[in-house]
Design a protein around this nucleic acid. Structure first.
Length: 411
RNA sequence: GGUGAGGUCGCAUAGUGGUCGAGUGCGCGCGCUUGGAGAGCGCGUAUAGCCUUUACGGUUAUCGAGAGUUCGAAUCUCUCCCUCACCGCCA
């Protein structure tokens, strides 16, 4: 959420930024009205409490009366606080000023293209056909045992996933990120509001019955929750994690050609970068995260483009976001494989994560996240871009040491 | 899962209904002392909201979380969470 003081003092800015993100800016005025009411009630309640606190054992009758009026005020206040919280959480994080203004994903700005799109002298197959023929991907068994959009990986399919994981963890580790294996489940307060809640959609989290637990949609949830309610000494910043977890998403209603095969599945593994830093450094670190993502896809030899997400496609949390999209011959189009966001202090305020500055004062940290490698979509790009006419797959050079071979072939 | 013990200010501890937002020690900061350091002495040492408006100001809330009893709760009751020990069960 945003700071109510900031909203009070920058009403026009907040309205504009809310509108630019495609959210309802009338919320701002409603919030301010409720805020005024709320503050009045706080004063009245506190006045009553102050009186009560001054009573001695000789004033029991007086105290009984105070208790009654307090009860009334407190319940009024409770209702208004609830409204207040609902409203303030509807105001999105304003986009940074360099983010392109736009309505929706059509207006994202392509800022870079890398790699040459391969011209096939045969008709290329998509990853599903390739993987099924090679016997390394099996959606049929997945559907039988867990339902549609679940899958099994066998042999080199399983090894490819683990090779990509090791490749990413080793690379990030060398860059000063601490590899972390996080829980795959988290409490509701973390998976709601910190994690993957696409704009205008319900949270697509799987939850555990009778428990305050849900399966995480991304390690962002557990890496962000890790330092909740903490005050971090400034000298420890930036904290750089590279998290590995399974990710679970219901993906309700997501079908069709563009969701084929591994592109949209209920469970996948992901290596995710996550950084806590000072407000001054977050924009620079955001560029670094993007540069790391690019380095990975250049080393893997996958043609990609980088999109600077426009305000209308940023979602509530991100102040700036870049997506990397890989070329996927199977769809003859680019498909998203990474996303890196600078959420500034928006998450930190929800999760109460501050840092202690050298002058002794506390301030909210900035938080950033970025995909290193997602084990569902990157294999799509590898299979489809590295396929040979006979259906075998050449293994990208940087993965060969983990795979222990140079080619995936049918057994 | 069972039984028992416990969760108080950075750490350690005191505190069983009003004098407790909370004592003491350590740590930390500032000052005095010193040629310098140490010791010693003095002062200070949470966070958040609201008000006045910026003052060494007032006020409220916070003693694992939530609910309750009470005029009044760190202290009493209930539920939950977490930690530790033992048992059971297992990878």
């Amino acid at each position: 959420m945003l700071d109510i003081k900031f909203i009070r003092e920058n009403v026009d800015f907040v309205k504009t930024s809310t509108k630019n993100k495609g959210f309802d800016e009338t919320v701002v005025d409603r919030l301010l009205a409720v805020d005024e009411n709320r503050r009045k009630l706080i004063q009245e309640t506190e006045e009553l409490r102050a009186k009560r606190n001054k009573l001695t054992k000789n004033d029991i009758e007086e105290g009984k009366k105070l208790k009654e009026s307090l009860k009334v005020k407190e319940s009024e206040l409770e209702i208004i606080e609830k409204d207040f919280n609902e409203l303030i959480n509807q105001i999105p994080n304003p986009a940074l000023k360099d983010a392109p203004v736009g309505k929706n994903d059509k207006e994202n700005v392509e800022i870079k293209k890398w790699g040459e799109i391969r011209k096939f002298d045969f008709s290329p197959k998509d990853h599903l056909e390739l993987g099924t023929n090679l016997g390394i991907i099996d959606f049929e068994s997945g559907a039988k045992v867990a339902g549609s959009q679940f899958y099994y990986l066998y042999g080199d399919g399983a090894l490819l996933e683990l090779s990509l994981t090791m490749y990413a963890l080793e690379k990030l580790s060398k860059k000063g990120f601490l590899p972390v294996i996080t829980p795959d489940l988290a409490k509701a307060k973390f998976y709601l509001g910190t994690g993957y809640v696409p704009k205008g959609e319900e949270a697509q989290t799987y939850t555990i019955e009778n428990e305050d637990l849900g399966l995480i949609a991304t390690a962002e949830v557990t890496l962000a929750g890790k330092h909740s309610d903490e005050v971090i000494p400034e000298e420890k910043l930036p904290i750089k994690y590279v998290g590995y977890s399974h990710c679970f998403r219901q993906e309700a209603g997501a079908y069709g050609k563009y969701s084929k095969g591994l592109y949209r599945v209920h469970q996948f593994s992901k290596v995710e970068m996550f950084v806590y830093c000072t407000p001054e450094s977050s924009e620079k670190i955001h560029q670094e995260l993007l540069a790391i993502e690019e380095e990975i896809y250049q080393e893997l030899g996958i043609p990609y483009r980088v999109l600077d997400m426009c305000t209308g496609d940023l979602g509530a949390m991100a102040a700036r976001k870049y997506d990397v999209e890989a070329w996927m011959p199977g769809r003859n189009d680019y498909g998203e494989i990474t996303s890196t966001s600078n959420v500034t202090d928006y998450q930190a305020r929800n999760l109460n994560i501050k840092y202690k500055k050298k002058d002794g004062t506390n301030e909210f940290v900035h938080m950033l996240n970025g995909t290193a490698i997602v084990m569902s979509r990157v294999p799509i790009a590898i299979l489809e871009n590295y396929q040979n006419e006979d259906g075998s797959i050449d293994i990208p050079q940087v993965l060969q040491k983990w795979m222990g071979k140079t080619k995936i072939e049918a057994k």
